[in-house]
Design a protein around this nucleic acid. Structure first.
Length: 885
RNA sequence: GGAGGCAUAGCUCAGUUGGUUAGAGUACUUGCUUGACAUGCAAGGGGUCGCAGAUUCGAGUUCUGCUGUCUCCACCA
């Protein structure tokens, strides 16, 4: 044992966490051995955005991953966890622009593309480093020698490769489509990047006069009157008796005077609204489709910033909402407005800035999804990829089965620039992995597409781009497909689904076999943590105050897959208290240790309690391993918690104190070895969850390995399971608890000792060796044991002593002077009643022919045994009552 | 509109294929300076497992309906 490595009196994690982490890094424990032939276990981190800092969501996600990774590493797997960060296109660009505006009053256009990008890279370097250091604070055992960034050279090459491959296969195309446009971010958004919010709006009912039919009109209801300038038709359902007569007529657009036709399209729902729908192909996704079917003109009436353009006539230059207001007023003044009806509805907003998106047509790049989705659906259907919990596959199928083409171009500067090159001179376009400057056709200069790719385009490649693809690297060969992906249910559609089809398409193999889904971390009131609410809890502050281990414990405990968790002061305090308990128990063990090496003594030397704790420990190992293999992280941890606190500390340590105090004896050495063996074993089981404290204690005890990180994870050892000893010990514990219980009920202070008389058939449990426990744990001054209760006749009985009946013994405490006969009688009567109740219940059960015939024999037998026990106890209780009378 | 989750002690949550008297943390009550730990020890009170049915010898657990609540997807002009 390293006598110099002491455990200070107080548990203060800040004293050692950083030091330990640094040591792990220095020793290179997180980097897998090059020549390992062990089975592989690989994980890629969901790359945090370089925009911000570590939040509770990351802390949970990365804690769960680290638990799995450390567990597998200790089990001897060739384990790799690849870390990295995401450039987070739109989010980061917005941050930097905001920063620029606030600090320098500049826009990105003032700086120009190149200079602006320099600023973003500065930002990335600063915040990317910060988030990495925060991950380290948490204790994540990532292989930092393999750290990646979505825009680093290799990942960028992967992006180009994929883009060109998909383009050549006809799976990427450029098209004039209606897309979601954010007028604030000035970029297209994919469907997934639009969120919907309930807003109060109006239905404005407007007259559209019918040409040539004086005074006649069609009533149109709209929530967005300002798009009127782009109307190129009004549609009615051809089956609608109320409106079909209008088909083919011509209407006159109010205020504008332009003529538009009435067309027939079954998109119009009969009975909804007025039955007539204005069709604005350039500003509404459904109208766009109608327009395509009827070959209608697309008239865009807004600029990119959502101000009105020349088509809006006198409203040109006004913001869309200002225009709406003015337009409605004018329509009313001119008599075109029939009525205004309040209409709450869902409005799409940009997921980054919250601005209401404007659907509009533009030239964008798309990924054709149907052919990619088919194998991705199949892989989950046939079990190549499993969701844990399984129900999230429904989520996935729902999205994949209804998928539309993916708009991947963004009108941003920060991101992977689209590798398309245009010749303005001959009009040709080239898509190329390499940069092109000169047109191969006409020799003129080429211009690269100014747009960048959706940030998820590169994230989709993360499981293989980080391992070196498109090169055929050793890492790729070894670690792809990865073992498990750990992420929150909120990005299944954004990210998980796209990684799956990308992996299948470009690698020909699924990117991971298991998707382990966790929930959100909410605040103590159950609200989502968000900046706007200001209810976010900073993981770093928690670490400073309570330690990373406590944070990890609080996040992992009670965690059940896929469910949200609340985070509260109570939980983190409970976690810290547990760490403190472990710390102090370890200090106790250490101060009683004189051995340099732990060696489990042979069976014949073991005391009853040693066999008992070994049996319990092995059961724990089995349970924890089974739970972790099923991703039941919370279950595994609560098992360790219960064992550590209730079994090891509250019982085994107490039971061992006598022998640990008897220095120089053989039994002392046995006790030392067993207690150290159990403690180090427990530390190993706990290490994946609480890496720092377990390492710190491990180092201070005799240890078999230079670091607990690479020590061998405990395995179930059947030869260490002693069922009989376990049973024997449980009887003692039950008896001690029963005595404590009675003493406490009678308000007997622990300092008042009393002789304990035990009558029991189980003399293998109750004997001179175990009698000592009653002295320490049950305030016994002396213990007398007999297997014949008559021995106590005339010495103790219900009238001069407290009588306690357990399943295995009748115990007397001669506390005659403080016995309240009345109270004692009441207690005994209550107990009698309770036993009678139980017996009746079982009698009824056993009298049920169906139960006896159909229930498993073991269950029936169990009931019979219970019954016999109760009857025996009842007899004892009745005898006591009789004596009291 | 479609899909899913949750509903168990005052609060926060476990409860793995149906099988003891339904558990933990926290809060509460009582007692304790027990030579590791008051961030602790010991004892205790507290639950009609949302409601109504069904299946079964047996339901917190399976099925159906309902109520409340949260989330995801789609989005109606």
């Amino acid at each position: 044992m390293d006598q110099n490595h002491e455990l200070p009196k107080t548990y203060s994690p800040s004293e050692f966490e950083d030091r330990i982490y640094q040591n792990w890094c220095d020793k290179g424990y997180f980097t897998p051995a090059k020549d390992s032939n062990a089975p592989k276990f690989s994980v890629v981190i969901p790359p945090p955005n370089v925009t911000g800092q570590l939040h509770m969501g990351h802390a949970l996600d990365d804690t769960l991953q680290d638990i799995l990774v450390r567990y597998k590493r200790m089990q001897g797997f060739d384990t790799l966890w690849v870390p990295g960060t995401d450039h987070a296109g739109i989010a980061t660009q917005i941050k930097v622009e905001e920063n620029l505006r606030v600090n320098e009053g500049l826009t990105r256009y003032d700086l120009g593309r190149e200079k602006f990008l320099e600023r973003v890279w500065d930002w990335k370097n600063k915040y990317g480093d910060r988030i990495i250091s925060q991950l380290k604070k948490l204790g994540t055992s990532c292989d930092w020698t393999r750290e990646r960034f979505t825009m680093d050279e290799g990942c960028s090459r992967a992006v180009r490769e994929v883009f060109v491959n998909l383009y050549n296969k006809g799976l990427i195309y450029r098209g004039h489509r209606i897309i979601n446009w954010c007028p604030h971010c000035l970029t297209a958004l994919s469907d997934a990047e639009v969120e919907y919010k309930d807003m109060d709006g109006n239905f404005w009912h407007i007259r559209y006069p019918i040409k040539g039919e004086d005074g006649k009109f069609v009533e149109i209801a709209t929530t967005r009157p300002e798009t009127m300038f782009g109307d190129t038709a009004v549609a009615v359902n051809p089956e609608d008796e109320a409106t079909k007569h209008l088909i083919g007529k011509t209407l006159i657009l109010p205020l504008v005077g332009r003529e538009i036709p009435v067309i027939a399209d079954d998109y119009v729902e009969i009975g909804f609204g007025t039955g007539c729908v204005k069709i604005t192909p350039a500003h509404d996704p459904n109208d766009f489709l109608v327009g395509q079917r009827h070959d209608l003109e697309q008239i865009k009436v807004m600029n990119d910033d959502a101000t009105m353009n020349a088509y809006a006539g006198k409203y040109e230059g006004m913001d869309r909402y200002a225009c709406r207001k003015a337009l409605v007023a004018d329509l009313e003044a001119e008599g075109y407005l029939i009525k205004t009806v309040p209409h709450p509805h869902n409005v799409g907003v940009c997921y980054r800035c919250g601005t209401v998106v404007e659907p509009l047509t533009s030239d964008q790049w798309f990924v054709k999804m149907k052919p990619l989705a088919a194998p991705a659906i199949e892989a989950v259907e046939n079990g190549t990829i499993n969701f844990v919990p399984e129900r999230f596959s429904k989520n996935y199928f729902n999205w994949m089965n209804n998928i539309l083409d993916w708009c991947i171009s963004r009108q941003l500067w920060w991101g992977h620039r689209i590798p398309a090159f245009y010749c303005d001179s001959c009009g040709e376009m080239f898509v190329s992995k390499e940069d092109m400057t000169v047109c191969p056709k006409c020799g003129k200069a080429l211009r690269q597409d100014s747009d960048v790719l959706d940030t998820w385009f590169s994230s989709a490649l993360w499981p293989f781009s980080t391992l070196g693809w498109p090169d055929k690297t050793v890492d790729l060969e070894k670690y792809y497909p990865t073992s498990v992906l750990v992420t929150g249910y909120d990005i299944i559609t954004f990210w998980v689904s796209r990684m799956i089809f990308s992996g299948l398409e470009h690698m020909g193999k699924e990117p991971f076999s298991t998707v382990f889904i966790h929930g959100l971390v909410r605040d103590a009131q159950g609200r989502k943590m968000s900046k706007s609410l200001g209810n976010g809890i900073d993981p770093l502050e928690i670490i400073d105050k309570y330690g990373a281990d406590a944070l990890r414990f609080a996040l992992a405990t009670g965690n059940s897959p896929g469910n949200d968790r609340r985070f509260s002061d109570e939980k983190i305090e409970a976690a810290r208290n547990f760490a403190n308990k472990l710390w102090n128990a370890s200090r106790f063990v250490r101060m009683n240790l004189t051995i340099d090496e732990i060696k489990l003594p042979e069976e014949s030397k073991l005391a009853l309690e040693d066999k008992w704790i070994l049996t319990k420990f092995n059961a724990l190992v089995a349970n924890v391993t089974a739970a972790l293999d099923k991703f039941e992280v919370g279950v595994a941890l609560s098992n360790i918690y219960d064992f550590t606190w209730d079994v090891f500390c509250d019982w085994y340590i107490e039971l061992s104190k006598v022998r640990l105090g008897a220095q120089g004896t053989e039994e002392n050495l046995v006790a030392q070895n067993v207690i150290a063996y159990i403690l180090t074993g427990t530390l190993k089981l706990l290490h994946p969850f609480m890496p720092f404290i377990t390492e710190e204690i491990y180092q201070a005890l005799p240890h078999d390995c230079e670091s607990i990180i690479i020590s061998k994870y405990p395995e179930l050892n059947k030869s260490e399971c002693y069922d009989k000893a376990n049973e024997q010990m449980e009887r003692i514990i039950a008896a001690i608890k029963a005595i404590r219980n009675r003493r406490s009920e009678m308000n007997v202070v622990p300092s008042r000792k009393a002789k304990v008389y035990i009558a029991t058939p189980y003399t293998d449990s109750f004997n001179s060796e175990t009698a000592v426990f009653f002295g320490r744990l049950a305030s016994a001054s002396e213990v007398e044991i007999t297997d014949k209760i008559e021995t106590f006749e005339g010495v103790v009985s219900a009238d001069n002593a407290v009588q306690i009946i357990t399943d295995s013994a009748t115990i007397f405490l001669p506390l005659a002077d403080i016995i309240d006969t009345e109270k004692e009688m009441a207690r005994l009567t209550a107990e009698e009643k309770k036993l009678i109740g139980e017996i009746e219940r079982i009698e009824k059960k056993l009298a049920n022919a169906g139960f006896v015939a159909k229930a498993p024999a073991a269950v029936v037998e169990g009931e019979k045994v219970k019954m016999a026990k109760y009857q025996e106890n009842l007899e004892g209780v009745r005898a006591a009552i009789a004596k009291l009378k």
